[in-house]
Amino acid sequence: MDAGLAAVCGALAGSVATIGAAFATGWAQREGARISARAEHLRQRREPRHSVYKEFIAAASSFSEICLSFRWAEIEFFTDERVASLQTASDGIKEAWLNVVLAGPTNVGLVASEVRDFAVDFTLSARMFAVAAVIEADGHGVRAPWMGPALIKYKESVAKMPQDIQRFTEIAQAALDNDGSKSLK
């Protein structure tokens, strides 16, 4: 190989190496920018989630406290006033639930949905007992046969709410602590 050809091959190899280095540097910069953008996005998502989760936990805890007052209740306890306070607390959960579902991630929304569903069912059952209490009072103390077992099951269900709140809290904490390295869906 003569000197001229060697110089051309050397120049060609140098330019290929320079182009390769430029591509590698560009790729690394793009990846770095993408990682930074992802981290910023996660930070921006975490901040509002914290307040949304806090609001939901507060609403669920308020509902749970009212539920405890129904734990030892007999049918006469189910007055319109008490059921209305339960309904107001249930409505608070439903409002906070919507924000949780929108803030995500999916697994947090699913547990929040379970809490909301329990609150709705518990409140509807309380309303049913309130109506039954009025009917019983008007019927001179005659109790429907379904009411005894239903009331026992209702009272036992009160213990579910604090467990669901705890489960929601744990999943919400995991979502807030996630740095983006694992998928929460």
Rank of each mutant, 00 (worst) to 15 (best):
D2A: 01
D2V: 06
A6G: 03
A7Q: 08
V8T: 11
C9M: 14
C9F: 12
G10P: 01
G10R: 04
A11Q: 12
L12E: 05
A13R: 08
G14K: 11
V16E: 02
T18G: 06
G20Q: 02
A21P: 00
A24Q: 11
T25D: 13
G26M: 02
A33L: 10
R34V: 08
S36M: 08
R38E: 15
A39W: 02
H41A: 01
L42D: 14
R43P: 08
R45I: 15
R46A: 15
E47G: 07
E47F: 15
P48F: 03
H50S: 12
H50E: 07
Y53N: 10
K54D: 03
E55F: 03
E55L: 01
F56N: 00
S62P: 00
S64R: 00
L68M: 08
L68R: 14
L68E: 12
R71P: 01
I75A: 04
E76T: 05
F77I: 05
F78H: 06
T79A: 12
T79E: 04
D80E: 13
E81I: 09
V83S: 11
V83I: 14
A84D: 12
L86I: 01
T88W: 04
D91S: 11
G92F: 06
G92I: 07
I93G: 12
E95V: 13
A96R: 04
A96P: 02
L98V: 08
N99A: 14
V100N: 01
V101W: 04
A103L: 13
A103Q: 15
G104S: 14
T106R: 14
L110P: 00
L110Q: 10
L110E: 09
V111R: 03
S113N: 11
D117P: 01
D117T: 06
D121T: 09
T123N: 08
L124N: 14
L124K: 13
R127Q: 14
M128R: 14
F129V: 05
A130H: 04
A133L: 04
V134K: 15
E136N: 12
E136T: 13
A137T: 08
G141E: 13
G141M: 09
R143S: 10
R143E: 03
A144R: 11
P145S: 01
W146Q: 05
G148I: 07
A150C: 12
K153M: 09
K155A: 10
E156S: 07
V158P: 02
V158R: 03
A159M: 11
A159E: 12
M161C: 13
M161G: 10
P162V: 02
P162R: 02
Q163D: 10
D164V: 02
Q166S: 08
Q166N: 09
R167T: 08
T169G: 03
T169I: 07
T169L: 03
E170C: 02
A172I: 10
Q173S: 13
A175E: 02
L176Q: 05
D177F: 02
N178Y: 05
D179C: 15
D179R: 15
S181A: 06
L184S: 03
L184G: 03
